[in-house]
Design a protein around this nucleic acid. Structure first.
Lengths: 203, 203
DNA sequence: TATATACGGTACTCTGGAGTTCCGGATCTA
DNA sequence: TAGATCCGGAACTCCAGAGTACCGTATATA
């Protein structure tokens, strides 16, 4: 009777409602963006998600794991990889990415970045997750645009792709996190026209 | 006898040894850079400075004020304003700034930035101090170099100086804080040659 | 129906750090 | 010399937040 065959560990009782996972993680991201890592408390997240604290601890063993999962689920938010703009010019492609809602959730991304920056040094798992979810996707899209431009002969084939891909994200992040000024459409366009395209050697 | 004239509140007792202030603030910066704002404890700072905790609280009313003072005292570290390089070319001036010890304490500056980024939003005084001590000085030096280049006719007079001044700091900060890769001389030279100078329109 | 687990919610324990107080000893003024 | 304030150091109070336990209720299996 009590024989729980190793091959069949059938679960008893009420099942966990995993449809709530995204709501909880989204609440965690809100609190994280608003208060920073140390300012964020599990009670805040639970209250925001209208969930019990025990519910959170049933799903994530600690605050750290919750944050890692929350950051991970931001991956490729606001980027539709199957439907990237393809305007025929490098400038057109880059400008096409400067649109709401790309700008809207980019704001929360920035605040989450600010919240976790100081944790990255002593938290390799969070650092890796943040890189995969927040840093890499945007650079990857840029790389596609630049590669197209190379294939078209629009820019030289020996440019430093890695460097070019980082200009936009770097200047946007610096303006938000350090200068604490808004990164609006006007500023992003200025970055493209005054820095990125000249650096790419566009005629 | 007990008359303490308002015009002469002569201090009794042993005098505070203000020569220790810089040592304490330097210890605070070390701990701040190593552990982040919330990870930093007053006990750590006191131990590092070989001082008593009461000594710290006699001089700064709270941890927050201590951190603000510590950040403020980083101002223009590693920059000798009275002896800036003047090589006759924009590239020469920019490259001349890419030297130890400019790179060495730049590393601690970066770590301090990472430590306080998430505090800036809810701490205007710290934000202002950080801007004056960490952000503004470097941009100001760059602005001098670019202005010289304009005066020489080396670059066009209608360039966006503010934007140009930020490229270097932004890309260096992004590489350190987000990518967590070393900002060495090679990388800084690459930024100058591949991004800054093309953006400035140097022939 | 009986048992087991999930749920939201509340109350609890425990730990670490901010800030305070006191100590013995040193250094200043009156 | 006496009183006041400093010093480094240690012990203390106080509190917020991580994590746990338990409540009554809901939903699953056997």
């Amino acid at each position: 009777m009590t024989q729980t065959t190793l091959t069949e560990p059938t679960k008893l009782g009420r099942k966990r409602d995993h449809t709530r996972d995204p709501e909880i993680l989204d609440a965690a991201l809100d609190v994280l963006a608003e208060t920073g890592y140390d300012g964020m408390t599990i009670d805040m997240v639970a209250a925001r998600a209208k969930a019990g604290k025990a519910t959170l601890y049933r799903r994530w063993p600690s605050k750290n794991e919750l944050v890692i999962d929350a950051v991970a689920c931001m991956k490729s938010n606001g980027i539709d990889y199957d439907n990237l703009p393809d305007t025929g010019t490098l400038r057109g492609d880059l400008i096409a990415m400067v649109k709401p809602p790309s700008i809207r959730d980019a704001d929360r991304k920035m605040k989450v970045m600010a919240a976790i920056v100081s944790m990255l040094a002593g938290n390799p798992e969070l650092a890796e997750t943040a890189h995969q979810a927040l840093i890499q996707p945007r650079a990857a899209v840029n790389r596609i645009f630049f590669q197209r431009a190379i294939d078209r002969g629009e820019i030289a084939a020996d440019v430093d792709l890695t460097m070019l891909c980082l200009i936009g994200p770097a200047m946007a992040a610096y303006r938000t996190l350090m200068l604490r000024k808004p990164v609006d459409r006007e500023y992003l366009v200025a970055i493209i026209d005054k820095v990125v395209l000249p650096a790419a050697g566009v005629r």
